[in-house]
Simulated assay, not measured.
Amino acid sequence: MQYRKLGKTGFDISEISLGTWQVGGKWGADFSHETADAILNAAVDSGINFIDTADVYGNGESEKAVGRFVKTRSERLFVATKCGRQLNPHVNQAYQPAVLRKFVEDSLTNMGLETLDLIQLHCPPTEVYYRPEIFELFDRLKDEGKILNLGISVEKVEEALKGIEYDNVTSVQIIFNVFRQRPAELFFEQAKKKDIGVIVRVPLASGLLTGKFSKNSTFTEGDHRNFNRNGEHFDKGETFSGIDYETGLSAVDELKALFPEHPNLAPIALRWILQHDAVSTVIPGASRPEQVLSNLDVFNIPALTSEQVSNINQVYQNSIKPLVHHLW
Rank of each mutant, 00 (worst) to 15 (best):
F176L: 00
C123F: 00
E61C: 11
F135I: 12
L113Y: 04
Q308V: 13
D106H: 10
L296I: 03
F69I: 06
Q86M: 10
V154W: 00
Q86C: 04
A160F: 00
L327H: 02
E155P: 00
V309Y: 14
G112V: 07
I283D: 01
G211S: 10
F259K: 02
L116I: 03
F187I: 07
G197F: 03
T115H: 03
H90G: 07
N318W: 05
E158R: 06
D277H: 13
I119D: 05
L296T: 02
G19P: 06
P97R: 05
V279Q: 06
L118Q: 05
D195W: 05
L137P: 01
T72S: 03
S306V: 15
I174F: 00
G60E: 12
S241R: 06
T170Y: 12
A269C: 08
F187E: 06
D139M: 07
L6Y: 01
D45V: 03
Q275L: 14
V252E: 12
Q120M: 06
F138R: 00
R140D: 09
G242L: 09
S171G: 05
S62V: 13
V198M: 01
S217R: 08
L141S: 04
R140W: 12
N300I: 09
G211T: 11
A191L: 08
N92M: 09
P132E: 11
A286M: 07
A29T: 01
V200I: 05
V315F: 11
R140S: 09
E261H: 06
T247K: 07
Q308A: 13
V172Q: 06
D195A: 02
V200Y: 01
N311G: 10
K64E: 14
T170F: 10
V315M: 11
E246M: 13
E165I: 09
G285W: 01
S62W: 00
S241L: 09
A191K: 10
A303D: 13
V252T: 13
N41A: 13
T126C: 01
A38R: 10
V157W: 03
N313W: 02
L108A: 13
V104R: 03
G285Y: 01
N168V: 14
A65S: 15
F11P: 02
S74A: 11
L249C: 15
D139G: 08
K102Q: 13
R229E: 08
A266M: 05
D235E: 09
F176N: 01
G19Y: 13
I134K: 05
V157M: 02
D52A: 00
C123N: 12
E114Q: 04
I39L: 12
I175S: 02
V44H: 04
A269E: 08
F259E: 04
I175E: 01
T281Y: 00
C83Q: 00
D253N: 09
L304I: 13
A38I: 09
N318M: 13
R76N: 09
F50M: 06
A36N: 10
G285V: 04
V309R: 15
L270S: 11
E307L: 08
F78S: 00
W21V: 14
Q291H: 05
V309H: 14
I320L: 14
S241N: 06
A257K: 15
F69E: 12
E307N: 13
E290G: 12
V104A: 03
